[in-house]
Nucleic acid binder design. Structure first.
Lengths: 232, 232
DNA sequence: CAGCGAATTTGAACGCGTTCAAGAAGGAGT
DNA sequence: ACTCCTTCTTGAACGCGTTCAAATTCGCTG
C-alpha cells in the first residue's frame, strides 16, 4: 500500500547482498534467543554478541528491539497461510474451514507462546507501529483478512447479503480475540484456547446462519451500521 | 481477598503517618507529571526531584514505575463509581442506566487520555499484576463488576434467568472493549467512543431482550456454556 | 590500480528504570 | 539520657535500550 512513498533506502532495507546477509543473521539470532530466553531476558547486546556483530549494527537494520517483533509478525502470517492451505483445500463446510484456519493460527504460534506473552504488551500500544491496527501493519493485517475471505468464499455457507462483505474483517477481529485469549491462557498446552475455538466456531456459524432470519434483520443491520460508523 | 496472607508490612504500605504523607506526595506528583508530560516522558528521577525526595524513596513505596499506574486504576474506579451515582439514582430503564454508566466511565478517564494510551501497553501484559484480569487487580475489577450488577438490578429489564447472573461480568467485558476502543480512538474529544457507546447500548439492550426468545434460547445457552467452560 | 562515495560496521557514551548497602529519624522501654 | 529496633531515606551503581560520530568495507569509474 505504501511501497511507492519511500524511494530512498529505508532503515532496515539493505542495499547489498552483504547487508541482506547480516540482516538475516541478526534476525535469526534474535528469534532463536527470544524463543530460548524470552523477549525481556534477551538483550540487544546478547543478540549482537551471538550474531558476532556490534550492537549498533543491529540498530542499522532494525529501528528498535520492538521492530524485531514486526518481523516475527510477518513470518507468522506467512506460516499461518501455509498451515491453513490443507484445510482450505479439503473442507467446504464453513464451520470446518473456520475452525481449521483458527487452529492453524494457534498451531503456528504455539512454539512462541512464552515470548509472545511478553511481547504482547508492545503490540498493544496504540501509538506503536507494532499494533495490529496500525498503518505499518496494514500489509500483514490485510493478508490475514484475505485469508478469512477465502474461508468464506470457498465455503457453502449462505450469508446475509449485507453481512457478507463485512464478514471477513469480523472474522479477523474474532481471530484477534482468540489470540488475546491465547496470550492470557495459562492452561497446559493452551488447551483452553482450543476449547474456545471449538466452542466459538459453531456459535459464529449459527449466528451467521441466523443473520438471514427476519427477526434478526434489524439487529444485523444495526451491527453493520455501527461498524461502518466506527471505521474511519 | 488476600488481606490475611501478608502479616508483614507489604511494600507500599506505610506504617507511620510520616510514611503515609511521603507516599501521597510522591503519588500526587507522579499523577501530575503523567498528565502534564505523558507516561514515558516522565522519569522516576523527575518525579523524585519534583516531590523533593530521593529516587530510591519512591521505590520504597512503589515497587516500580508501573505500580504507580495501579494507583491510578483504583482512583479512577472510585471516581467512576461516584460519577455514575446520579444516573443510577435517576434512571430505571436498562439502556439508559447502561449508557449513563459507560459515559461516566469515559468522562472520568478523558483528562488522562494522553497518558492512558501510553500506559495501556503495560496493563495489557498478561504477566503483569497491572492487567485488569490479574489477581492483583481483582479488587477494583470486582468493584467494577458490582457497578454493572447495580445497573442491572436497579433496572426494569426482563432478562433470561440463565443469563442474568452472568450478565454483569459480560457488561464489564463490554466496558473493557469500550476502553480498548477509547484508547485507540484518535478522533477529536474521542467522539467516536461516544458513538460506540450510543450505538452499542441499544444493541445490547435488544440482544438482552431477545435472549428470552425461543429461537435464540439454544444460542444463549451455547454462549453461557462456553463462558463457563473458559472461566477457571 | 587509485580514488571516490555510498553502504555498512563499530563501540563508547547517554539517559533511563531499578537495586541496595548504608545511614538517619523516630519511638518504646529502662 | 541511653539503647535498641523498626521505619524511612539516601544516592551511587548496575544493566538496559538507544544514539552517533568516526572508521571500515566494497563496488565502481576514470
Amino acid at each position: 500500500m505504501t511501497e511507492q512513498t519511500a524511494p530512498t533506502t529505508a532503515a532496515g532495507e539493505p542495499a547489498t547482498a552483504r547487508g541482506e546477509q547480516t540482516r538475516q543473521l541478526i534476525l535469526d539470532t534474535a528469534m532463536r534467543l527470544f524463543r530460548e530466553r524470552g523477549y525481556a531476558q534477551t538483550t540487544m547486546r546478547a543478540i549482537a554478541q551471538e550474531a558476532g556483530v556490534a550492537v549498533g549494527n543491529a540498530y542499522y537494520y532494525f529501528g528498535s528491539k520492538d521492530h524485531l517483533i514486526q518481523e516475527f509478525y510477518a513470518r507468522s502470517q506467512v506460516e499461518h497461510r501455509a498451515a491453513a492451505q490443507p484445510v482450505l483445500d479439503r473442507e467446504s463446510d464453513f464451520a470446518a474451514r473456520l475452525a481449521g484456519v483458527l487452529h492453524a493460527g494457534i498451531d503456528v504460534l504455539t512454539p512462541s507462546h512464552g515470548f509472545a506473552a511478553s511481547f504482547f504488551k508492545t503490540a498493544a500500544e496504540p501509538t506503536s507501529p507494532l499494533s495490529p491496527f496500525s498503518a505499518e501493519s496494514s500489509a500483514p493485517r490485510q493478508a490475514a483478512i484475505d485469508l478469512f475471505a477465502e474461508v468464506l468464499d470457498g465455503s457453502t455457507a449462505k450469508v446475509d447479503a449485507e453481512l457478507r462483505p463485512q464478514l471477513p474483517e469480523l472474522l479477523w477481529l474474532a481471530y484477534m480475540g482468540v489470540i488475546l485469549y491465547w496470550v492470557y491462557d495459562r492452561s497446559p498446552g493452551q488447551a483452553r484456547t482450543r476449547q474456545l475455538i471449538d466452542g466459538a466456531v459453531p456459535l459464529i456459524d449459527r449466528l451467521v446462519g441466523l443473520s438471514r432470519l427476519r427477526v434478526l434483520r434489524p439487529v444485523t443491520r444495526q451491527v453493520l451500521d455501527l461498524i461502518r460508523t466506527l471505521r474511519h
